[in-house]
Simulated scan of single mutants.
Amino acid sequence: MATAEHIKSLIRSKFSDDTDRFHTIALQVAAHEARQGHKALAQDIRDIIDMERKKKGPKLFPFPKNIQGLVLSENPTVPLEAMVTPRNIKERIERVIHEYRQQNKLKTHGLKHRRKILLIGPPGTGKTMSAMVLAKELHLPLHTIQVDRLVTKFMGETSAKLRQIFDMIQQEHGVYLFDEFDAIGGDRSMENEVGEMRRVLNSFLQFIEQDSSDSLIIAATNNPRLLDRALFRRFDDVLYYDNPQEAERKSLIANVLGTFMSTNFAWKKVLQTSDGLSHAEIDHACRDAIKDAILTDRRKISAIQLLTPLKERRLTHEGIQG
């Protein structure tokens, strides 16, 4: 059962009306019971806490001060319907959501819901949005770990911070996004890979292998060729993203422009000009056109008026590619 310290801490947090602290300690009790082999009790505790949180909406947990600057927390508002992505990607995200909601049913058969996901694709293709959608649909906070800030020059410090983050993953239920993941997931066989980074990667492999929480762990990268091959088998699912095809571009532009779109919108040139641009670049171009329409008191946006910001984005895109 719960330790004496857990019981005293629960009582203190209750009488001080510290609900967040009460939930945290209760989750620690659940983790303690799980380690003792009392998995059914641990799950019952988590279910009770989740039910209460859903009534009030997810709350952002204050991370320890020494890792606060490494984690950005938010309650996303992007629903699944807002995603414009290939059908196979949306179906696989829907599968993650469905398995999460039916996790107890799976556990009765000795199975686990998929919750460790690797997202691969160019910048701006919807990887971060996917994490936001999962958090929104599952009524969980999204915690984005800034991997580039996690890595330090001091030996052992990065692995220590990584351990603290995985401790939080165990204690605080949520969606955890490791963005720019290749900063710590680099191939250990590469000649220029320093010893410290190999130790960091080994630590991550160990932590994610041992993780038994119900939190979703999502890693996103633009450079899959840099990743160590051992990482791939640690994830339950790997999703590959790409720039939107014609039908997706048309749907995205129509969704963003909404009522600003003119009735006789000439699609051909717009679809040609937007070819090769990412979801994010097209979204920004549409919003630039909307701002221009508002500032010039125009009620509608024609294809010609959208072409200018699209061409600007294309020049930027081609300049980066070049």
Rank of each mutant, 00 (worst) to 15 (best):
R229C: 05
R149Q: 10
F204T: 08
M51Q: 15
D179H: 01
H284M: 02
D167W: 01
L111W: 04
A30C: 08
L140P: 04
I301F: 07
L106H: 09
I49G: 06
D283E: 12
R114H: 09
R46A: 05
D228S: 05
L70W: 05
M132P: 00
P79V: 03
I253V: 11
V194E: 05
I48T: 13
T296Q: 12
R12W: 00
N66S: 12
R95K: 14
M51F: 00
S73Y: 03
K269G: 09
V270C: 14
G126N: 04
A254G: 11
S73A: 14
E209F: 07
N75C: 10
G195N: 13
A183Q: 01
I48E: 15
T296I: 00
I120H: 00
A183T: 06
L27Y: 07
T158N: 02
L70S: 03
M197W: 00
T273L: 03
E137T: 06
D50K: 11
V96F: 02
E196F: 03
I93M: 00
H113Y: 12
R313H: 08
H32K: 13
V133R: 06
G121N: 02
F204Q: 03
K250N: 05
E157I: 08
A4C: 11
Q68W: 04
K59I: 10
M83F: 08
F63W: 14
A183M: 04
N66W: 01
P123G: 02
T259A: 12
